[in-house]
Amino acid sequence: MSIIAKRSATVLTYFLTIICLATSSWVYARETLRVLTWDGYADNEVVSAFEQRFDVAIELTLVTSDDDLWQKINSRSYDVFAVNTAELQRYIDQGLSRPIRMANIPNHAQQLQRFQDLQAIPGLVRQNDIYAVPYTYSEMGLIYNRKLVKTAPQSMSAMWDAAYRGRVLAFNTSNHSFSLVGLLMGVANPFRMTDPELEQATRELVRLRRNVLTFYATAEEATRLFAKYDIALIFGNYGTQQLKALREAGADIGYVIPREGALAWLDCWAITRNSQNPELAEKWINYTLEKAVSERLTQQHGLANTITASLNDSTQNKPIIWLEPILNPLARKTLWDRIISGEAPEAF
């Protein structure tokens, strides 16, 4: 046997060994579903039940704001994510999400009547393709501390009230913050604000920054701050979910839909364009629409679900403004980062 032949045999052996090792580990690895979602949408119990039933692993990543969601989707890969109908539009525009095959979501038939016709819900369907399936919704009202605020506030403008300086919790997000100010300013469309309107709103948001204790990110953080400081007002970004958390922590709070209207979101499941396992992602969506899973949203997390009609749906007969796509989200985000970093009003 020549030296060359001997060497190539050795190389071949190594090669085969590596292939065997690689394939065996690949064969035995469980499939992984990467879920990007909000706190409470997929709690431990829901996740482990899914993992057991389908013998898969779930890699769960939580987001704290729409900006955060956008940033994460653009920097890492996920299979399925929860996004509101307005935000969804830029994901579709940018080709970040893919159509869902509704045949794989048989539980859609169980959803309440108003979620049956997906065409009728703005933003879910584009060119006959369905891009998202509704999962939960809430409006974002104003939470107030009954101990400190004797008369229920009528408007979000209360957050600017100097009387509550250092006792307001606002939310760390660019899109709603601007829309909120837009609403208060009475602009034509708070989701499609012009540059001058944005400019003015920025100044208002700096004013707001000067009046708040801080900008919170998670509902849990807000609850913690509420317990520690004399918080008077909280912008309820997480809506009813946040109310439940606060009340369970023993807070004596009230909740109002402001007269200028409350922004409301309808969060849906969507599948990423580059999902490695769209079938599994569809299984996940279908699974979350099972009655027991969806009802858990309500029972455990105080969120509305799309399967059972809620007893006192606060969105009924109130000035509710469902979120719409933002004209230039990046501009808002850039401005917001500056605001939150503490830039002085003169800088804008």
């Binding site: 920054r209 708040v212 204790l213 801080t214 400081y229 503490g342 830039e343």
Partner: peptide, 14 residues
């Protein structure tokens, strides 16, 4: 001076 920021809303301040 012009680039100095306002930080009251950060925990290390409040």
């Amino acid at each position: 001076e012009a680039q100095l920021q306002e930080k009251n809303h950060f925990p290390y301040v409040f």
